[in-house]
Design a protein around this nucleic acid. Structure first.
Lengths: 326, 326
DNA sequence: TTGTATGCGTTATCAC
DNA sequence: GTGATAACGCATACAA
């Protein structure tokens, strides 16, 4: 019987068929617990969910988790979420998880500078793969990330092609790797296109009133026929509000592009950058698989491009024929 | 050694201390797999994540999952998400999960009429607890839900107290138990207050253009000094958009209340109904615990009240002194 | 009070 | 090509 399951080619065809029929008939499913015990692998990956829920994944965490869960099932494994009682010192939670062999390794999210987790996991020979670059150590290659700079770059070029002449950037305060990366895309693209105006930028936390005031100044600066690229859909929402309150129409008077393609972008018909979370999840699982089987470090970090979803907020500039009647 | 862990009172104090010191020293953690095998309980609960992501939990699923994960850890167990390859026929996924003993039972979400899962799980003696009423069978008591009708009722009364005179309802098309429940709260409260106007209601799917047109008609109907209660923050966003486009200020010209207290509500400073997901998770785990230990059906269904979070979109009606300068 | 043996379900090894 | 057996780590029952 064990041979049938585990080495079907070493068994006589008729016995194989007979045993398989019984397996089917009885609805036999191997016990994961026994398999785990025997093979010394849990077939599960842990993922820390931050109760704060902030950070860049706030808006897309659920989708990512679903993709991860679906992908893991395809590899015969599971994803087991856990929370760290103290988010500032998450390592004990990781340690318990690995010591009790609930998970063979981890999916890291919300990687940050001075993140203690990669070094600790490496030191303890625990496989991991990160959604988000491992910023501290360029030697670490077990990560997948979305190229925010490339995405913003593409958005800027798109807006320029649509005829918007002054393109500003509404972003987060300096210091967050993700935010700085996205801003660099704006700086790069505007420089390449010869339309760089470093003063057309504003920073604001993810709070609507602050975002609105910051956007207001920026809209003054770029004016009608200008456009704003935003670090997130939430910031774009702030800009959208200012535009509408002033009687300006997004995508007609002022171009607007957000980031993450959330409900908000869909609701307001905002162009936005969509992260390929299915590919991220697939790659994360691939990295985990190879890391767990061998210590093969040949799988390098991977940067995926977000997809610019074009909606009405980045219609050709000045195309006022399409202005909607109110 | 095993006695020390499992029956500390039956062991000599000095041996106990000595062994515990070693446990601490070696960082010993029992293997979940071995425990599972021995005790025939996985100490884990499965939760199906719908890849569609629609349904009422769309906006709050991640928070609920975090609460559930945190709560489970407190009980020494885990939560294991899984996806059904065919969402229309999820039972095989449940069956595999239980057959391989990955989970001892399930947390059901997105319960619906003609939901095949409760009956199947009961028939197979698999414990479960639902977030959402089990609509088909009033005899089933293993559920926890948030009283949407009571929440909307409270929102209507709040708006009436604030001086809004014509209170309309923007909801989903009839047929979904959750949506119908929420609508009934509006009907009830307006009737109680003697301000019922059944025609001040509109239904729309969670698609923004439809929501906006529906909201537009409704805003026409209730006019300035009126208010709208919405079945979700997404619908409230649609209404908010119409208001802003018309130069009306939410909470000054027209009152607005959403449901779920999502990012959107926080970003737009919308009053909204907050679901007590921590309590829901706690109760779900409690029900699961008692169901798994015994077949004790004494734990009945529980309806929790959502909390009305009051923000600027339901300020006293007509209080135009606070209208912000633009 | 302490130590030891058994079996949970699986898989891999090894006689047959 | 087939069937029996040991071991994974733990909890429990029982012997010392």
């Amino acid at each position: 019987m064990s041979n049938v399951v585990n080495a079907p080619e070493r068994v006589a065809p008729d016995t194989l068929a007979r045993v398989q029929a019984q397996i089917e008939l009885l609805g036999y499913q191997p016990s994961r617990a026994a398999q785990t015990l025997k093979q010394e692998r849990a077939g599960a990956w842990g993922i820390e969910l931050n109760s704060a829920g902030f950070g860049r994944l706030g808006a897309i965490l659920d989708t990512f988790l679903i993709e991860l869960t679906t992908g893991a099932a395809g590899h015969g494994s599971h994803v087991v979420p856990f929370t760290a009682p103290d988010p500032l010192d998450p390592l004990p939670a990781y340690e318990r998880f690995v010591a009790s062999r609930v998970a063979d390794g981890f999916v890291l999210t919300d990687t940050r500078t001075s993140d203690p987790r990669p070094a600790w996991l490496d030191a303890h020979h625990v496989p991991y793969a990160a959604f988000g670059r491992v910023w501290d150590d360029p030697g670490v290659t077990s990560w997948v990330d979305v190229d925010g700079a490339a995405g913003i770059d593409a958005a800027v070029r798109h807006l320029a092609e649509q005829g918007y002449e002054r393109i500003g950037y509404l972003g987060w305060p300096e210091g967050s790797p993700v935010g700085d990366d996205r801003r660099s895309g704006w700086a790069r693209a505007t420089a390449d296109l010869g339309i760089a105006h470093p003063e057309w930028q504003a920073t604001t936390p993810q709070v609507i009133d602050a975002a609105s005031s910051a956007a207001a100044g920026l809209i003054d600066a770029v004016g009608t026929g200008g456009a704003l690229v935003c670090a997130s859909d939430a910031l774009a929402l702030g800009a959208w509000r200012v535009l509408v309150e002033r009687g300006l129409e997004p995508g007609v008077d002022v171009g607007l592009v957000g980031f993450d393609d959330t409900d908000i972008a869909q609701a307001l018909d905002l162009s936005s950058l969509h992260q390929p979370l299915d590919q991220v999840a697939e790659r994360v699982l691939h990295v985990l698989g190879t890391r767990a089987d061998s210590r093969d470090p040949s799988v390098g970090g991977l940067l995926l491009d977000p997809e610019l979803v074009i909606r009405s907020s980045s219609k050709p500039a000045g195309d006022r024929t399409k202005r909607k009647e109110k």
